[in-house]
């Protein structure tokens, strides 16, 4: 039943059925939108009421999993993170993220970015393999050192930045903001010693040199990762390295065991109140 605070909104959807459609086409579905309703909720409603075959990818519905990146009213966003009311429009146009092949309807093929991401060696590269496989303690890192990469580690690989990037729009060779941001996330981690290995890829034509700071990636990132910042800081690191100005420090060592005397006045734990059956 239509309440006083519900609104009629048209979902203008980009549909594509492989094997049936030669080209994607637009389709309109009118639904009632209630306050607080997200675009993702709207898609579920459309699927329930008028387009049962509508396909998209979503999972956590709380901006964590990075599945539901879509082009919503011309801007790459997470469908679960976007309320219909914040768009301020009676028409909600939803299309699959551009710059990725369309698998079906609103489902983009994200595999290319996952493959490029893997080429960036997005993990700690160190010589002490035995310690990494079977750690004795944590590696030492100060809060200030943590801050140098923490922001970039919030990336959820949703692909919104790749859809907004003008270089990615034409250049299939360019690694793009997501993989480059993640390469910098590890290059700026004091526990990592993989700069030279990552440089093999980054100093080449697919590296950060194709970025000209149009700034779109950082504007659309739903997690505040700011890939544009990571890419510029990465260029600085790589150029300093070329000019032999980069300070080379060994990767953080394993933290020492705490030393001092054990207090002998620590009270004993209270007796168990639950016994195992």
């Amino acid at each position: 039943m239509a309440g006083s605070n519900t609104k009629q909104v048209t979902f203008h959807l980009r549909r594509f059925e492989p094997g049936k459609d030669a080209e994607p086409h637009w389709e309109d579905h009118s639904i009632e939108v209630t306050p607080g309703m997200t675009v993702l909720d709207g898609l579920w409603k459309v699927k329930e009421l008028s387009a049962p075959s509508l396909a998209w990818r979503s999972s956590c519905r709380m901006g964590i999993c990075g599945s539901c990146g879509m082009l919503i009213n011309g801007r790459p966003r997470l469908a679960c993170n976007t309320q219909v009311s914040e768009l301020g429009s009676a028409i909600v146009a939803v299309a699959p993220l551009p710059n990725f092949d369309i698998i079906k309807d609103l489902v983009p093929d994200l595999r290319p970015i996952f493959e490029t991401h893997r080429e960036m060696l997005p993990y700690l590269l160190r010589d002490d393999t035995a310690e990494q496989e079977d750690p004795t303690r944590e590696y030492r890192q100060t809060p200030h050192e943590l801050e140098q990469y923490l922001q970039f580690s919030y990336c959820i690989k949703c692909g919104c930045c790749m859809a907004a990037c003008p270089t990615v729009a034409t250049d299939a060779q360019y690694a793009g903001p997501m993989p480059l941001g993640q390469a910098h996330r590890y290059d700026s981690d004091t526990r990592d010693a993989g700069f030279d290995r990552r440089r093999e890829v980054l100093a080449g034509g697919s590296g950060p040199w194709r970025c000209h700071f149009a700034g779109e990636c950082s504007q659309v990132c739903p997690k505040g990762v700011d890939p544009a910042k990571a890419i510029q800081l990465m260029k600085r690191q790589l150029v300093s390295d070329l000019l032999r100005l980069r300070r080379r420090t060994p990767p953080a060592a394993v933290a020492e065991a705490p030393h001092g005397t054990m207090r002998d006045d620590i009270p004993a734990a209270p007796p168990r109140t639950v016994t195992e059956a």
């Binding site: 100093a203 040199w209 260029k235 150029v239 070329l242 000019l243």
Partner: peptide, 8 residues
């Protein structure tokens, strides 16, 4: 020459 050098 690699792009890093050319860009610099």
């Amino acid at each position: 020459m690699r792009d890093r050098t050319l860009w610099t």
